[in-house]
Design a protein around this nucleic acid. Structure first.
Lengths: 327, 327
DNA sequence: CTGAAAGCGCTAACAG
DNA sequence: CTGTTAGCGCTTTCAG
């Protein structure tokens, strides 16, 4: 691989001059510059970013660490973060933790060693406050941060749940069930509270038999709707914790000749790609991945610019109601 | 950020010793090693991979360049390449070209400058032979390479089409239509040939009215099935160029009360995530993303090990038949 | 405008 | 076993 020295030798100048010429610095005569640029082209010179990083102490690289790149949600986010970083001249190193906290630690360490200029992280699990701060690197989380100084970007789950409930109530549904996600998940808890609040504000009773938790999966939705339909007074609508849960319920409804949205209104959460397929056509609350990604990158750039201080941003992205044929 | 020199000073040894101790080289007494490791831990030392790369001339980094990270197909591949690279101690830089050849060139250049040790590339368009070879870097393509020396990994579309056709014929379908993808796409052309060959081998007539091309989209499938059903002798089965085309057709069938698979058998290609949803449940030919990704990485490692020679591998991955409810 | 020289943080001979 | 020293390829003073 050809270096600046090779160019200098060929051009009969010092390699400092070559560096200056190539970096467009003012203190070089236009003639030598032209000559050197031409030569570089001709000899196929490619600057060594590694050496450059070493001396400049900047890598123009950021890291994005997510649990699962192949998950559609993170894939979308990866895309937008990547694009936004690109626009600002940053290259992105994408890491995958496979939902493994140990791997997450390892990846963080590697990224520090690679001297990335900042990290955007979707944590795999609850993080002890302080542990990330100790990284002493610009950092943005896709998560409500704890009581440390970190910035985060998150979807406003309360607002999303409220939109969903208002929509169902407006449509005239009276017995709305909540098919929640994993009970302990923060987003689930926030949404459940909004669910109850919305019912109360509408003067509708809160029936605990209509509230359930479970995994964010198809099967879970299918099974839970089955239980609900065996109640004396089954629900006339479902607010689901994820599109998968909703699709499981939808499947149950189709199998049992329940008309949707006539007998049963269904609304999901996320707006995954399949939700908008004609065969599915699910009403849902979109978590806008593009905004999440862009906001995270913007926050990170801010963090980078003030580092080692922290900007400590708290960014809530507004979700969007997507009305389709299941309500 | 603390360096090897800081450690040396604190420990009262030369920094060469620190380097040796930290890198687990034999020629250090265990006592000093222990002392230095403890000190490094205590002071929060993190080796500078940039400096290390500069001297060792290896970055332990590879690049994966794809048109669209958020595309489910590439997201899966990104995942497996990433994981496989990880297992071999490589970090992956993921790049996105947005199907833009100019961006592709730019990304390739940046990756060369970053001194990655190899590149896995899904080209956005036909590539002029030679242009990539000139990179003089280990390289693997997701594409049939031209007449240059590059390695590639690709799905065996001929075999996939054959499996699909055999399956339909075995099920007793007699008038099988081909709803192809973009006419000029190489995969489409290969599959179409297999389609005709399979019909002929089964002693079934090839009716040109049953052959069509179009975009790989839902709408395209929907519309084209409409045309087919208006023929005097409509088909009794469809071999589709993508799952999306198949799902569009499936949608048409549902809307028009055609029973699937009774009146009409449908088989897709790809096995995207939605295809296996109960609501869809599409019979299809899977393009195994995991194998593609792993094979590509393996090929790249080979390329790296023999570089600057080329291994020139031609790897065809066998697709798999996924029988579901539409046939 | 250009050259000489120092140094980014680290590894790897080469001497002791 | 340990220290000294020379670079890896580049940017950036500091002198001319």
């Amino acid at each position: 691989m050809i270096t600046i020295k090779d160019l200098a030798e060929k051009a009969g100048v010092s390699y400092a001059t070559v560096s200056r010429a190539l970096n467009g610095r003012a203190e070089v005569s236009e003639t030598t510059r032209a000559r050197i640029i031409a030569l570089a082209q001709e000899m196929g010179y490619q600057p060594n970013a590694v050496a450059r990083s070493l001396v400049s102490q900047k890598s123009s690289t950021i890291a994005l660490i997510v649990p699962d790149v192949s998950n559609l949600f993170f894939a979308d986010i990866t895309m937008t973060v990547h694009k936004a970083a690109d626009d600002h001249g940053y290259t992105t190193m994408v890491c995958n933790t496979s939902w493994d906290p140990a791997k997450e630690q390892e990846k963080l360490k590697i990224m520090v060693q690679q001297r990335v200029e900042g990290i955007i992280l979707k944590p795999t699990a609850f993080i002890k406050p302080g542990i990330l701060e100790a990284l002493s690197l610009p950092l943005v989380l896709f998560w409500h941060a704890m009581d440390d100084n970190l910035s985060y970007v998150e979807v406003d789950h309360a607002a999303g749940a409220q939109m969903a409930m208002h929509h169902l109530i407006e449509k005239g549904y009276k017995r709305i069930a909540y098919l929640g996600g994993v009970e302990t998940s923060p987003s689930n808890q926030i949404r459940q509270m909004s669910y109850q609040k919305a019912l109360q504000e509408a003067g509708l009773p809160v029936d605990p038999r209509l509230i359930s938790y479970g995994s964010f999966s198809l099967e879970s939705g299918f099974k839970r709707l089955g239980s609900l339909m065996r109640l004396e007074q089954p629900p006339d609508a479902l607010f689901c914790g994820s599109d998968l849960i909703a699709m499981g319920a939808l499947q149950y409804a189709r199998n049992h000749n329940l008309s949707v949205p006539g007998d049963l209104g269904i609304i999901g959460f996320d707006d995954v790609a399949c939700a908008s397929l004609p065969l599915v056509n699910l009403t849902t609350i979109e978590q806008p991945r593009d905004e999440l990604g862009e906001a995270a990158l913007k926050a990170l750039l801010d963090e980078i610019s003030v580092f080692p201080k922290r900007t400590k941003q708290r960014i809530l992205i507004k979700p969007k109601l997507k009305i389709r044929s299941t309500t």
